[in-house]
Design a protein around this nucleic acid. Structure first.
Length: 464
RNA sequence: GUGGCCAUGGUGAAACGGUUAUCACAGAGGUUUGUGGUACCUCUAUUACGGGUUCGAUUCCCGUUGGUCACCCCA
């Protein structure tokens, strides 16, 4: 097997390289050259730090998610990041790329096969069953957020650890549920300054799909010679995926292919029509996309994806997506016929879209900045400042300070760079007089006030 | 997993194969220790890592790692 050879070669090379570097290191150490030994750790491939410069986007996202969940009465749920591998295999499906080649799977110390979650739904479905949520008033509406893991090749907007905001409604099959979910996702983006459109389709029940696949394969076989190599392979493995092939020639062939909508049962058709009617009612822009199928096995009936309105749809793929999964709970050992529906929205892509919208001049987020700086001078003042800061905080007055800085000059410089409107200055003299200086940063005017009135004074400033 | 492009300080850039790798911004400290937005001074990189070619490599070649783009797939 050539691949095995390759890896063997690689490892031996690596070992040699390691040995060499070790020798060099020890020599350097003896010389006392410390700089050389500084090993800089980089994040693991595909992992990314969320750093202060992006704080404003992430905080806005969490806020928007939380407020929407509250507005539509969804309850918070957080499931473990690691679950038994079988949970994902059974729900997402063998043969899907997510399970076959993108999961972080390993043996724990007891030898159990465990995997880091590649999506939320399986874990939440499991939790629904484990916690007996079938005994709560149905349907159960849940929301969650957190990191997910897929061992994909990294690219912009695609990381091995990424984050999603997800909503699930378990224990109800009604088109209005799907419409509500789609609406929440739509509003989520809109609140963040991103205009989206919803690509939507219905893939019917499992039975509908099987009938359709027979028809589709029949059609595609007749045009087999025109298909791309990849699509030829998928003809036997996963024919539905041929539908969203990006190959131009495939697309041409697909133009005359049978459409899944025509193969839906009456029940699924009616259901889908209702969903669309509700979306019309909500004025949500949607595009019927007969080729939209989605990669996870548990989906049925309604499936949808969010895209930036008028954006380039191929580059980073969808911002988020979701669908109905009526059979999953039962399949995982839950009560018979517990239909459900949900979505997951990719937040890294959301941040990307927010930045793009901002570049176009849209106001996306406003960062909350302190408006008052609290400067202190000398050890006595510093001690007093510690206490005053606490008192102010209890009164709900948030001020910014850096107690670790000594010189007033440095503190005022910082206050200036933070663009605060006022600075409170506490020095030796003020501590003794029980007063404090309030400096207006724009005019340079200073006012000496009694420490007792400080909270009120600052509150008045903040009100302006 | 496949293919293309790329890799210089915290950030953005510069340096025909040739002496101490240049500039701007950001950061830290300071210009006699109680007053900012300006000015000045000092500090902050053995050019991603490891090899090779060469008298000499940031510059050329190979490998590794990482980024990025297009696939696969997905968020």
């Amino acid at each position: 097997m050539p691949p095995a050879k390759k890896t063997a070669k690689k490892t031996t090379k690596k070992v040699i390289a390691k040995k060499k570097s070790l020798v060099k290191k020890s020599v350097a150490e003896k010389k006392g050259d410390t700089k050389k030994n500084k090993k800089i750790f980089e994040p693991i491939r595909g992992m990314k730090d969320i750093v202060p410069r992006d704080e404003k986007y992430w905080l806005a996202i969490w806020k928007s998610a939380r407020e929407l969940a509250r507005a539509y009465s969804y309850n918070y749920i957080e499931t473990p990041i690691i679950e038994p591998t079988q949970l994902f295999v059974r729900s997402i499906g063998k043969g899907t790329d997510v399970v076959d080649k993108e999961m972080y799977t390993f043996d724990d110390r007891d030898g159990n096969k465990v995997s880091m979650r590649p999506e939320f739904t399986a874990g939440i479905a499991r939790s629904f069953i484990s916690n007996g949520m079938m005994n709560m008033p149905q349907p159960v509406k849940l929301w969650t957020r957190g990191p997910l893991f897929r061992y994909d090749r990294p690219q912009a907007g695609r990381y091995r650890q990424f984050h999603q905001f997800g909503c699930e409604v378990i224990g109800g099959r009604d088109p209005v549920i799907d419409a509500e979910l789609i609406n929440i996702g739509y509003n989520f983006y809109r609140d963040l300054g991103i205009n989206t459109e919803v690509y939507i389709n219905s893939i019917g029940s499992l039975e509908d799909r099987q009938n359709y696949i027979i028809e589709l394969v029949g059609y595609l076989r007749s045009k087999r010679s025109y298909l791309s190599d990849l699509s030829k392979k998928r003809l036997t493995k996963n024919p539905l995926r041929i539908l969203d092939s990006k190959d131009e020639q495939d697309k041409e062939v697909l133009q005359d292919a049978p459409q899944i909508i025509e193969w839906l049962s009456q029940d699924s058709k009616d259901f889908f029509m209702k969903v669309l009617e509700y979306l019309d009612e909500l004025h949500i822009p949607y595009v019927l996309q007969p080729t939209l199928v989605r990669g996870l096995d548990y989906y049925c009936d309604t499936v949808y994806e969010y895209y930036v309105e008028g954006g380039d749809h191929t580059s980073q793929g969808a911002l988020g997506g979701g669908g109905r999964y009526d059979a999953l709970i039962e399949q995982l050992g839950g009560r018979e016929s517990t239909p459900a529906s949900g979505f997951g929205l990719g937040l890294e892509r959301c941040v990307l879209a927010m930045k793009a919208a901002q570049k176009e001049g849209k106001k996306v987020v406003t960062q909350e900045k302190p408006t008052i700086f609290f400067a202190q001078l000398g050890e006595m003042a510093r001690r007093k400042a510690l206490r005053i800061f606490e008192e102010l905080r209890r009164d709900g007055v948030y001020v910014m300070s850096t107690l670790s800085k000594g010189s007033l000059r440095a503190q005022l410089e910082l206050a200036d760079s933070m663009k605060v409107t006022h600075t409170a200055i506490l020095g030796q003299k003020e501590v003794q007089d029980k007063t404090i200086i309030i400096r207006d940063m724009a005019t340079g005017m200073q006012e000496i006030i009694d420490q007792k009135t400080l909270a009120k004074h600052l509150q008045n400033i903040l009100k302006k």
